[in-house]
Computed example of a mutant assay.
Amino acid sequence: MIPLVLNAESDAEAPFVTRLASRRSADPRESFCLSSTPTQSLWCGMEGLFTLAHPMDALTGDVVLVDPSARRAERLLRAGSPHNSLLVTEQCDQLCVMCSQPPKKTHRDRFEHFETACRLAEQGSVIGITGGEPTLHMGPLLAMIERLLADRPDLGFHILSNGQHFDAANTARLAGRLRTNIVWGIPLYAADAPLHDHIVGKPGAFERLIASFAHLLVAGARIELRTVMLEDNLDALAGLARFVAHNLPHIEQWSLMGLENIGFARRRWDALHVDLRARFAPVGNALDQASLYGVPVRLFNIPLCHIPPEFRDYAVASISDWKQRFAPACEGCAARANCAGFFEWHPDHLVEKVVPL
């Protein structure tokens, strides 16, 4: 597992963002390495000297947020990684049964640091924005992205949202510069309100979500529809495919996603998890329905050997590199490079049930 938070020591008076470089440069936003061992590196920048509990070679090019009082550094943007995301809040107004990031009541406003980090991002980066629910802070969020795109139009953003906070007031704003540079990843778990509302733990969520989709459609927003496959909604997936085809034909992609064994899902795993090796038929039916109606659909977070051969072309190597793992038996698999593998915290007894291709 790739560490995203490192022990750090700094005499700076406040948290700061910097990009790590192997040698001194003319850019004052960069810090350069003075020395490095296999376990620690010493850096120098505008905020003075600081140490990170990681070697230089693994950090060069990263954009980090150093917090002196907490004695830690967050690797906000890792060099060369397509899986960078910023956790902008841990607040949320839903309580999904399988939530991987259980919400908190408090909010730490770090938009200033995140904006600085994005300005230091590699050319053409697509940066994830996640939570909690980012649109609970819609104003600061959109303002940050608008400022960034004014100077860095090469950047793209993939924002995960529960879709509860879009209305006519922000339609025009979303239809402007933001339209082409943002993809909204929005979950829909069933075609009927009671089941969707049950899964997200919020009465009325389905109705509000459908209203939000209408506003996003008017804005011409780019949407990735996301559905986590659970015991609760497995048999409803084919119906959801037809609903999407008839009511949300403008989406860019429908992502059917395997369950992550973390957060709320960990203690409810036996009740929520579906072993797709034995019960893929409802998923296959949904994929067939989506394809029949022209809905672009993909499978996320599922190892290729757990998918019947005729459906493997739908699969995406989707799990972020920092939390991805494979079974020892996967070493000799010819399909490993194109496989999602497993989440780092997937149950060991299930990880071992692989069949190299």
Rank of each mutant, 00 (worst) to 15 (best):
I2A: 05
P3K: 04
A8K: 07
E13P: 00
E30C: 04
S31R: 08
F32L: 00
S35C: 01
Q40F: 02
W43H: 03
W43R: 01
F50T: 06
F50L: 00
L52Q: 04
M56I: 06
M56S: 13
V64C: 15
R78T: 14
P82T: 11
N84Y: 08
P103L: 01
R110N: 15
R110Q: 15
E112C: 03
F114R: 07
T116L: 02
A117R: 04
C118A: 14
L120M: 15
M138D: 05
P140F: 03
L142C: 03
A143M: 02
A143L: 03
M144Q: 09
I145E: 11
E146D: 09
E146N: 04
L148Y: 12
L149Y: 07
R152K: 05
P153Q: 12
I159E: 08
F166D: 07
T171P: 00
T180L: 02
N181W: 03
V183M: 02
H196D: 13
H198M: 08
G201E: 07
A205Q: 12
F206L: 05
I210F: 03
I210W: 05
A214C: 05
L217R: 15
A219F: 01
M229Q: 13
L230M: 11
L230G: 10
A241G: 07
R242H: 14
P249H: 12
P249N: 10
W254I: 05
L256D: 14
F264W: 12
A265G: 10
H273D: 11
V283E: 14
L287W: 13
Q289I: 09
Q289T: 13
L292R: 14
G294S: 06
C305G: 02
H306D: 14
I307V: 01
Y314Q: 00
V316S: 08
A317V: 00
D321V: 04
W322G: 04
F326R: 02
G332R: 08
C333F: 04
A337V: 07
N338Y: 08
G341W: 05
F342Y: 09
F343N: 07
H346Y: 15
H346L: 00
P347K: 06
